[in-house]
Every structure is written in C-alpha cells, then in structure tokens.
C-alpha cells in the first residue's frame, strides 16, 4: 500500500516537471509557429494571385474556418478570389490553393499539401502539370492533360478544383 503511494507520487512529480517544461517550450515557440503559418499563407496567396495587392479572408462567422479570400488590386478594387480545394488522391488528401479572376479564369494553382507516391504522384506538384491550369476556365478543366503514371493524383486536383470553384461561385452569387 505504502509502495503504491510512493510510486504514484514519484510518477506525478516527474509528470509535473515535464508539464512545466512543455508549457515553457510552448510559450516560447507559439508566436513563432503562428508567424510562420501566416507568412506561409501570405506567400501562398501571393503565388497563386500575383496580380493582387491585398487579400481579405472571408469567414461565415468570426471563429469559423476561412471559406475563401477576396483579392484586391492596388486601387482596392476586387479582382478575384483565392480558395483551397482538397480531394482524395492515390494515397493522401491533395490540397491545392487556387486563384481565380472574376471571369472564372484561373490565375494559378499551387499544391500546398500532398503525400502521394514519390516519383509518380508527386509530379502533380511540378510546374509542367500545375502550369496547365493558368488562364483556363475554373468551371471546365476538361482540357488539362493528366500525368502518365499519376492519373489518380492528377484527377484529384482537377476534380476538386472544379467542384470547389462551383461551390464558391454559388456562395458568391448568394451573397450579392
């Protein structure tokens, strides 16, 4: 019985010290991690919508997830939207950031997260594939050539971008 309490006490002591250390580490790295995430987001937005000077996140409510971004030019005029599309690829969810102009033409796309087969599916991140999306109508991407050996991964991007583009278009129409 006495043993049990002693063991419990020692384990609790070690856990308390560990928790204190983790809290300190978290407090030190948290602002840095937050800044990194924001920096990355900004860089990604700028990459798929180079024509824009500023972005504004659109959320349904303050603490909900971001639906899409509005892109403004240097005169504060709305020139397009940026949204995130995700679809099931061969071995992972493939997430893409897409920039579209007001006339549904795609500015550029960028794969932001994927875990596809190295050497095959991974090639969807290459410019040879993503470059095809520029200046195409986001609602009809049937002309995009899929990569040989990476059909499922390529299709995942094409379909998810089209689907999300339609959703966003609906959303914007309802807002007006």
């Amino acid at each position: 019985m006495k043993e049990m309490f002693r063991y419990g006490f020692i384990l609790a002591l070690i856990c308390t010290i560990a928790a204190g250390l983790l809290a300190a580490a978290n407090a030190l790295t948290r602002p840095k991690i937050f800044a990194q995430a924001q920096l990355e987001e900004r860089a990604g937005l700028k990459e798929v919508m180079p024509a824009a000077a500023g972005f504004k996140a659109v959320k349904p409510e303050a603490d909900k997830e971001i639906l899409y971004y509005k892109a403004f030019d240097s005169q504060d005029k709305l020139i397009g939207f940026v949204f995130k599309a995700s679809g099931k690829g061969y071995s992972s969810m493939v997430e893409t950031l897409v920039g579209v102009f007001l006339d549904d033409k795609i500015s550029a796309i960028k794969v932001i997260s994927q875990n596809e087969t190295p050497g095959l599916g991974v090639r969807i991140t290459e410019n040879k594939f993503t470059g095809q999306f520029s200046n195409r109508n986001s609602l009809d991407l049937s002309g995009v050539q899929v990569i040989a050996g990476a059909t499922i991964s390529s299709r995942a991007i094409i379909n998810s971008v089209m689907k999300k583009a339609r959703e966003i278009k609906e959303l914007i129409k309802n807002e007006k």
Binding site: I10, L11, I14, C15, A18, L22, T29, K32, I33, Q36
Partner: peptide
Amino acid sequence: PCYIVIIATFVTIAELCMKAY
C-alpha cells in the same frame, strides 16, 4: 512509464522547435 514521460517531453520540445523554425 517514467522513461516514456521523459522521452515524450523531449520529443514534443523537438517537434515544437521544428514547427517554429
């Protein structure tokens, strides 16, 4: 269990640092 708590603490610190830098 004591070793695992100690190891997990270091792993989490390493992970946080990696995320930050």
